[in-house]
Each structure stands twice: as structure tokens, then as C-alpha cells.
Amino acid sequence: MKLITAVVKPHRLDEIKEALQAFGVQGLTVTEASGYGRQRGHTEVYRGAEYTVDLVPKIRIEVLVEDTDAEQLIEVIVKAARTGKIGDGKVWSIPVETAVRVRTGERGPDAL
């Protein structure tokens, strides 16, 4: 199994969710995150005083998938998340040793 993590622009969440559902993903986890990459942050001005916001709001999406689906799923997320502008985010995958469905105790791919 693989854990695919995507840190993307918040307003792309709905497109990504739809694309994942169309692909047949059964579940996912979404958290609000903040951070920066090459985009860095932005500057705000309050009564002339500059305020640099270097951590910008992001969404982190996590999906557990079978090894065979991983590459294709990454492509699906990247396509749905892309705006072409700086700050679109990153997607990566890491191997997962085990997974358990809490309700039934099923393990491995059966738990997905």
C-alpha cells in the first residue's frame, strides 16, 4: 500500500474530491494546513506598517491506496490540482506497512 499526500491550494479541493471519486477512491482525509514553497507569502499593509504573511493557507489531502493504483492516482490529483500558477503545491507517496479497518479488524488492502 501507499499513502499519497497532496498539499494544494484550498480552492482546488472540490475538483480533487470529484476526480478521486470518479477514480473510485473510497475515502480520504483532508486537513487545513499552512506553509510555503517557491511561492513564498505575501505582504499586507496596516496603517502603513508592512506585515509579511509567509505561511499561506493550504489543504492537505491524504489517501491510502494499493500499490498498483498509486501512480495513476497521483496523476489524477496533479491534474485536478493544477492551475499553472506558482503555489499549486506538491504531491508525494510513501510506502505504508499496514492498515487496519477499526470496525472489523480487517488488515492490509482489505482495509482500504
Binding site: E44, Y46, A49, E50, Y51, T52
Partner: peptide, 11 residues
């Protein structure tokens, strides 16, 4: 205030 001039205080 702690951080006056060093940190901007965002409303």
C-alpha cells in the same frame, strides 16, 4: 508591547 517595531501587529 513585546515585539514593538520588531513584529508587526496584524489586526
Amino acid at each position: 508591547r513585546v515585539g514593538f517595531k520588531r513584529d508587526p501587529f496584524r489586526p
